[in-house]
């Protein structure tokens, strides 16, 4: 690169130090939780754990896997992600394709767009929504969590912009060969849209994994709580939840610190996010930039 003055060199050093400090503030809270979750009760009670486990133990994790409702809630969340992302993807694709057409090709396009756009700006709110779901009889079912938000309008717009950015010739060629709209969408567009689909699928996954409020409102039976809703109940009364463990767990519970038990479950709740994180990095940011620039 070009020459550097002394001032620039000094700035550079400070810049790197600043960056490292900022990164530490972002990472250390999570590392602290991890350290607490692996530490023995005596050290936690003495507030001696900082960023490294003291008196290493796996019991908080054994408790999460074997006792309480952690695993039940985990599987509810897995089921929710399966149905939720599936429904989201289906509805987004079926809506984004027609809406990516111009008004000449699809004369009702703007009316549909307005129909969906209005829902982004105005909504009935939580209470009528709750009454509606309970009138349909969907309380305590997984459908209450995955169908109502079936079409995430914002992600759909991103997908629509992706489709618009594709060269028109792609579709025209398929149409000339006699393919209709359905075949064109399934066989020509979907394969080239993979990065875009990955982006919006990740959005959908994140939403369904992280969402907790609907689970709390729509589920009366705690056995139906998705993971984040279950974790929310931990925030206030982990002690009470621990005491619900059966007799076979009492041995573990007796040696378990509340804070460690909770930290372990909070950390396990982050694991799926951290696992897809490399893909998030790759598609999320890049996909966001490409998808938003209209072609």
């Amino acid at each position: 690169m070009h020459f550097r003055t002394r001032g620039e060199k000094i700035f550079n050093v400070f810049n790197y130090i600043f960056m490292v400090l900022v990164c530490l503030t972002c990472a250390l809270p999570i590392i602290h939780i991890l350290a607490v979750s692996f530490s023995s009760p005596a050290y936690i009670a003495g507030a001696r754990v900082t960023f490294w486990p003291m008196g290493f133990t796996l019991e908080p994790y054994l408790f999460a896997f074997r006792g309480g409702r952690f695993m039940t809630a985990f599987w509810v969340s897995v089921e929710r992600v399966f149905w939720g992302v599936g429904i989201n993807m289906f509805l987004m694709v079926t809506v984004a394709y027609p809406l990516a057409k111009s008004t000449q090709e699809f004369s009702a396009r703007n009316y549909y767009m307005a129909f969906f756009a209005i829902t982004m700006i105005f909504g009935g709110g939580l209470i009528p929504f709750f009454i509606l779901i309970s009138d349909i009889g969907w309380l305590d079912t997984i459908w209450s969590l995955v169908v109502p938000g079936g079409l995430p309008v914002f992600s759909m717009v991103i997908l629509m912009n992706f489709i618009r950015a594709l060269p028109k010739e792609l579709e025209e060629a398929a149409m000339l060969d006699g393919a209709g709209h359905f075949r064109c969408l399934a066989l020509v567009l979907l394969p080239v849209l993979k990065p875009a689909l990955a982006t919006v699928a990740l959005f959908a996954f994140l939403h369904h994994w992280n969402e907790w409020l609907l689970g709390m409102i729509f589920m009366n039976n705690p056995a139906n709580f998705p993971l984040q809703t279950y974790l929310q109940t931990l925030l206030t009364n982990f002690g009470a939840l621990m005491r619900q463990g059966g007799p076979e767990l009492q041995q573990i519970i007796a040696r378990l610190n509340e804070r460690a038990g909770r930290s372990a479950q909070l950390f396990l709740g982050m694991v799926p996010i951290l696992l897809v994180y490399p893909f998030l990095q790759k598609y999320f940011t890049k996909g966001l930039v490409i998808g938003s620039v209209k072609g």
Partner: peptide, 24 residues
């Protein structure tokens, strides 16, 4: 075909996004 593709999302949005507005 384009209208047909819109049907599922149209119904879901009508019921679950516009439905609660009536509750207002």
């Amino acid at each position: 075909p384009l209208h047909l593709l819109m049907v599922p999302a149209f119904i879901v949005t009508l019921i679950f996004s516009y439905g609660p507005m009536y509750g207002l």
